[in-house]
Design a protein around this nucleic acid. Structure first.
Lengths: 138, 138
DNA sequence: TTTTGATGTAACTATTGATGTTACGACATA
DNA sequence: TATGTCGTAACATCAATAGTTACATCAAAA
């Protein structure tokens, strides 16, 4: 099973908000760039707002990024829109079985370490890296 | 969105196959340890078999691991049962938009690097690590 | 040869989460 | 007050997982 598209959509959103920061940015406008429904955008913005990454102006519309781009990492975006646990344990191992009764003890820390490796890598990448690259492309 | 439980179930399977290797191991027996349906086990074994990690004896039953435990990594198990791509890109970014038209160029390599970091970590862990730990627990 | 017990797999159901959509109240400004 | 926007509920749709039943196939023992 793959992760959801929320992470890449959220990254797309943030880049677009920065790129078009000289104009007023509405959820309709952003939906046009991602090619999705404005409500999907609003839900993502709502999560990014809860993570203190953006401010959304109610009523008149408009989105602003609240922190310097080089301090916003991929991990910040990821955590804002995805579940905290990457791996999904099967629910009811048989505790009567010597393997089933120790399976969590065997795996939990290792799975956490793998997730940590992914998170560490996500943390090395910032939105500033993207906007720098983009400025050389357009 | 979390990954599926197939990965942890597959790890559970492999450990159990090793732990009970002195007896004949059926999908019914393994299903009892994981607490799931035998068909779920057979489907997982089928994928592990396709990855050359186990042999399953048809007709009379029985499962054997085909390689030394210290050469079978978490990554081998992961690749046997999960999709090759971890991240899931949103389908149709607007190519008329300067952000939409460059979003893949901006993200593809970076997402691949993150996945690589996860895979590298998965590759440092082997089934032998688990059986060694388990032998100290029971 | 027949019986037994197992695998392989198709087909179906149920559940979950993501994604898309409509609708509408709340809000800020002109 | 009118307009355009956000926030969010409600619902529809879709895809994948996970579970289940059923049955053909197979290998070995009786």
């Amino acid at each position: 099973m793959k992760l959801s598209t929320k992470f890449t959509m959220a990254l797309h959103l943030m880049i677009a908000v920065d790129y078009f920061s000289n104009q007023k940015i509405t959820s309709d406008f952003l939906a046009g760039s991602i090619n999705t429904n404005p409500v999907v955008v609003r839900r993502l913005l709502s999560q990014l707002k809860a993570a203190n990454l953006v401010e959304v102006v109610r009523g008149t519309g408009g989105v602003k990024i609240t922190q310097p781009l080089d301090t916003i990492t991929f991990l910040d975006i990821y955590n804002a829109v995805e579940k905290p646990e990457l791996f999904h344990f099967h629910d009811h191992p048989n505790l009567e079985c010597p393997v089933g009764s120790h399976i969590h003890e065997l795996l939990d820390q290792r799975l956490a370490d793998v997730q940590k490796a992914m998170e560490d890598k996500l943390q090395t990448m910032t939105l500033a890296d993207l906007t720098t690259d983009l400025s050389h492309m357009v």
